[in-house]
């Protein structure tokens, strides 16, 4: 399988702190890759560097053979990478529909003339988008589809997560980065959300997903392959079974006995 995204010698330094240290990592087309590691091992930093929020201090990131290590967040998004955030970053005062459509900038017409004057075309685009947002949401939760005009702040935590995933998916990206989607959720809610992610996978088999997770049962259930980070380096990679047996991983998580 060819790599969709690969980094070579990726380094991210914040003054004295090296968050990513000479990291080599391949993400293969169509896989669900679990990104693991203790707190502070550089998982979220990796997402931020890939999406252009931080500029890498060194190394290369290639996405579909294009170097994106110097690209702006906008360019990365346009190339086809979308993400969710560890702490929910929804626009709570806006409707659920608006929140999803904010992720769809790639397909919306931004022209001032179009938006102010061509209201009929705008209306048509709006209706197409409405159907799309509705379809997408109903993969997750049937009830949410009827609540598109409610404020995002008025729904439960798990539904907010679903909306965030929809926002990332609506532009039909090639690579989806999920930053600890189960954070702050109960065991049952986590299971529901993982069902949702597997449902997406079924609907969009060509989508590649990278997921940061701590729950081992979650990782075991949904990932094809895992990479474990520690101190910004790759500790090991392999299937869940392989990494779970790895002595280095056990040591990193549990400390030396």
């Amino acid at each position: 399988m060819s790599a969709l995204l690969s980094c070579h010698g990726l380094v991210m330094r914040f003054r004295g702190l090296t968050a990513l240290d000479d990291l080599d990592l391949d993400i293969r087309r169509g896989e669900i890759l679990g990104l693991l590691g203790p707190n502070g091992s550089g998982k979220t930093t990796f997402f931020n560097v890939v999406t252009g929020v931080y500029k890498a201090s060194g190394g290369r990131i290639e996405f579909e053979s294009q170097d994106i290590s110097k690209s702006s967040p906008q360019a990365v998004y346009r190339a086809g990478i979308a993400r969710t955030f560890q702490r929910s970053r929804l626009c709570l005062p806006l409707t659920i529909f608006d929140n999803i459509m904010i992720g769809n900038a790639r397909h919306l017409d931004h022209g001032l003339w179009f938006n102010l004057v061509r209201r009929k075309q705008l209306r048509r685009q709006f209706e197409a988008c409405w159907a799309e947002a509705h379809d997408l949401l109903t993969i997750f939760n049937k009830a949410l589809g009827t609540r598109l005009l409610q404020a995002a702040g008025s729904v439960s935590m798990i539904d907010r997560r679903r909306i965030e995933v929809c926002r990332a998916l609506v532009s039909r990206p090639k690579l989806l980065l999920l930053d600890e989607p189960s954070a702050g959720m109960t065991h049952e809610e986590t299971n529901e959300l993982m069902d949702d992610i597997l449902a997406i996978r079924k609907r969009m088999p060509e989508l590649t997903i990278v997921i940061i997770e701590h729950g081992m049962s979650v990782i075991e259930r949904i990932t094809d392959r895992c990479v474990v980070l520690n101190y910004g380096r790759k500790l090991c990679e392999g299937t869940y079974g392989e990494i779970a047996r790895n002595a280095d991983v056990q040591q990193a998580y549990l400390g030396t006995s």
């Binding site: 929020v53 346009r78 992720g103 938006n115 532009s171």
Partner: peptide, 26 residues
């Protein structure tokens, strides 16, 4: 009309969360 358009939606997104807005290509 500006408010009720994609541009208005993007204005709101920028006001509420600049980082999220730029991550989604705005």
């Amino acid at each position: 009309r500006l408010e009720r358009s994609w541009v208005g939606m993007h204005f709101d997104a920028v006001r509420i969360d600049e980082l999220a807005a730029s991550t989604f290509g705005l």
